[in-house]
Write a protein that binds this DNA or RNA. Structure first.
Lengths: 359, 359
DNA sequence: CCGGTTTAGCAAACCGGTTTACGGACCCTA
DNA sequence: TAGGGTCCGTAAACCGGTTTGCTAAACCGG
């Protein structure tokens, strides 16, 4: 009847080997400071006892955790289903692993991101989609944790990585204009506290790109032409559905994410229309599957993986003390034309917005 | 010129407040043991000093980390691009968050999974795709960490969650047989040390399902009809490419993952053939985007998210001591018929395998 | 045989918290 | 006035390692 076997500690090994804790520690971490024979004897005994140095205790003395945190303002259960996030995480993981760091995801704990941050044992943080209206940014800063902001809107004292959202949006809009579209709807991202409508945030920048380009062509966007929803397939389908229900029949759709674009295409198909015959759709992100959708998606490519990679590289450079100055990186976007866009349908060109053909 | 400001510790707060460390600790964790006035005074001073209890130190005394680990035999940089994994992670994250646990991903550190395990500070582990030829399973067990195996092959002393892979594979194969296909190729998963060909593993079970069903119809699988590759789009495209290069012209393809199926479809299109006109393709997993591919994918549905959810639920039940007995769960699979499969092309029915029509 | 350098290992301090056991002050009650 | 509860707070042990002097023995050239 052995009772619930207590964890084997360094003291147990030391005692059984007839040496001090120090010796055991040395045997594991700097064997050269010990007689070879002693070292291997200690290691043997440790093995035999099933001893494994407690990583938490180790962290405490070494003041480093060997992990970097990924901070998301939304629950992971929603975020992980976003292919964008998968690719982004892959980028992060790639260089983190390469440098021997683990990955720890920090998301709101019982609704509170602060609480989650305070429980997190990491050497630094990559925050995705955290705009400056999140007080958490300051919290992390005050905690003395190195941090890099991705897709944020602050360009202040903390390092950041972005892409040229506005430029990408302009490319998308111009593409549609060149195809003769004049009646264009916008599907904007509106996650709960996502990289949202905040001044200067991602959504704001893309919207600004769409707007300014259309305005240059003399098209003023009626408020009703913008529908919002989460950046998912369902979000896109619902958003387009609402547009349709309100009587809008645009010839083209600018979606702020590939997920929404795919959802919009589904919604269009469900109503018996074709893409791009009746409606053109252009997405944003260029996720892996964008080339394999039905039809293949015209979209704005952004280096999602690269964003994760450079973020971690910047983070590591400050964690490892090579660099203290906050840097700012802005990566490029470009338009990838596939098959979800085509010329504006001649038959509907004259149909002005607000005068839909019968449903 | 203040030097690199040292972290604020509990002792600093105690001193400034003129109380003991104990009092400060109480102020944070059990304020009811302190005079209300004292407690809030301490809290104020802590705030003012920017004090944040060190989570590592806390872990050490409390002997719990508040995080669960996700163990993957492959690098995260490859795994995160797999949509299957995203959905699975979402399932895990969902119930983990709900119970106040964080998520820590454990992948091989500099090629060694053991090393990664020893650095990981978690209360328990969900291992995905770890077959019993991985010695790491025992390592975790010996470390005394609660663990649940997902998509493994052991049904021994450690808890596990699976799906009915063999049954699902049979459904897929039968579907093709009913459509008149007789010349069927298989695209098998073969990641580096993935849930691989190991006896009883996922691949093994699916293969067995395919094989037995075809055998019942009198079709013996020539070895050359099985191509292997990673469970990705590229993996599928390459695998099919190799098949084609070796002269095979099957009328149908059984792919072990949706990614491979999509890759195969791309490869088929690139060679000027159509799906399902010339070749039918059926996948496995039924990822979110399977309904939106070109053409929409016929595939075997498995409850990916549910797998993650039940795994964590089982894990928590042992972590929190409600249950010590290892349980085993087997979830259902079912066939979802979409548009990537159709009748075997009459023109090619008589073309026997091994007598390809001219390339 | 001697002073100086290595080598091998130890005791104790430390990392930053939590928790246990205890004690003084104060209040009631008998 | 003694005895028994609360209330408030403290000192010290503890969690499980790492690291910093320090010493005793072995080695070494002259």
């Amino acid at each position: 009847m052995e009772q619930s076997t207590r964890r084997v500690t360094i003291a147990d090994v030391a005692e059984k080997a007839g040496v001090s804790k120090t010796a055991v520690s040395f045997a594991f971490n700097s064997p050269d400071r010990l007689n070879t024979a002693t070292a291997s004897r200690i290691l043997d005994i440790a093995q035999e006892l099933g001893y494994r140095p407690d990583p938490v205790a180790r962290m405490l003395t070494q003041r480093r955790t060997g992990a970097i945190g990924v901070l998301t303002p939304q629950d992971l259960s929603v975020i992980f289903t976003n292919p964008f996030f998968g690719t982004f995480s892959a980028g992060i993981a790639g260089v983190a692993e390469e440098h021997g760091y683990g990955l720890h995801f920090i998301s709101p704990l019982h609704g509170s991101l602060s609480r989650a941050i305070n429980r997190a044992t990491v050497d630094g943080v990559v925050a995705i989609g955290l705009t400056d209206d999140h007080p958490e940014i300051d919290e992390v800063r005050r905690a003395g944790l190195p941090m890099v902001l991705v897709d944020s809107n602050t360009s202040g004292e903390v390092a950041s990585v972005d892409v040229d959202d506005e430029g990408g949006a302009r490319l998308a809009a111009r593409h549609l204009l060149e195809l003769g579209h004049r009646d264009i709807a916008i599907l904007a991202i509106d996650g709960p506290r996502s990289a949202g409508p905040a001044e200067g945030g991602v959504v704001w920048r893309r919207l600004r790109g769409y707007r300014s380009t259309l305005a240059e062509a003399g098209i003023e966007l009626p408020a009703g032409e913008i529908a919002t929803g989460p950046a998912s397939i369902d979000g896109g389908r619902d958003a387009f559905g609402r547009l349709w229900a309100s009587g809008r029949r645009p010839t083209a759709v600018l979606a702020m994410s590939d997920g929404m674009a795919i959802g919009a295409i589904q919604a269009i198909h469900e109503r018996g229309w074709t893409v791009p015959g009746d409606v053109s759709v252009v997405g944003f992100d260029d996720v892996d599957l964008a080339a394999s959708t039905d039809p293949p998606l015209t979209t704005v490519h952004q280096p999602v993986r690269g964003k994760g990679e450079t973020a971690v590289r910047m983070l590591l450079s400050v964690i490892e003390g090579r660099n203290a100055a906050p840097g700012h990186q802005r990566l490029e976007t470009r338009l990838v034309v596939r098959s979800s866009t085509g010329p504006a349908p001649a038959s509907r060109r004259e149909v002005a917005a607000g005068k839909p053909k019968s449903a």
